[in-house]
Amino acid sequence: MAYVTSILSVVILSIIADLMLSGKRMGKFVRAIFAVVTMLMIAAPLPSLLRGESFNGFDLFGQIEADENFLGSMSELKQKALSEGLVKALEEEGYRGVEVTLDVDFNGEITIKSVKVNLSKMVMDANVSHINKYEAVEGLICRYLGVDKELVELYE
C-alpha cells in the first residue's frame, strides 16, 4: 500500500504541476523531471526484491505429515481382521475356540512376523478328534498364511 500511495502521490503532484505550468517554457522541463521521478519510484523496490528481502514468510515447501497414531490403529484393525479370518477358517476345519494373535508388517508387501496360537480353549469336532491337534493346527496355519513352521508358536 505504501508503494502504491507513493506512486499516486508523485503522479498527482506532476498533474498539479502540469496544470500550473501549462503553456509555459518550464512546463515541459518539469513534466520530464516528474516522469523520471515516477520511474524511479516504480523501480524503487527492485534492489530489495533482487536481494530477496521482500519475501519474508515465503516458504517453498510446507510440512504435510500423516497421522501415525491412526496408522497404528489401522494396522491393529487389519491384524485383528486377519486373525478373525484365520479363526473362522480353522472353525471350518473343525477346530473351534482357537485364539490367534498375528504380528504383521503392512508397510509395503504384507509380511507376517509371527503367529501365536492359544489352544487352551480349543474344542475339536468329532471327525478330527483322533488327529494330533498340534501338528494339524500348525499345518493348517502354515498352509493358510503361507509361512514357515518356525513362525508359528503354539501354547496352552
Binding site: 489401522m74 484393525l77 487389519k78 485383528k80 481382521a81 486377519l82 478373525e84 479370518g85 484365520l86 473362522k88 477358517a89 471350518e92 476345519e93 508387501e109 504384507i110 498352509r143 493358510y144 498364511l145 503361507g146
Partner: peptide, 27 residues
C-alpha cells in the same frame, strides 16, 4: 495383496481376505 492372502486355499482363504477387505473398503 488380496490374491496373496487367498492364494493357498482359494475358498478358505476368502475368510482371511474378507475381513481385511472390509477394513480396506471402509477406509
Amino acid at each position: 495383496t488380496k490374491l496373496a492372502i487367498s492364494r493357498y486355499v482359494p475358498i478358505i482363504g476368502g475368510y482371511l481376505s474378507e475381513g481385511y477387505n472390509l477394513v480396506i473398503s471402509g477406509s
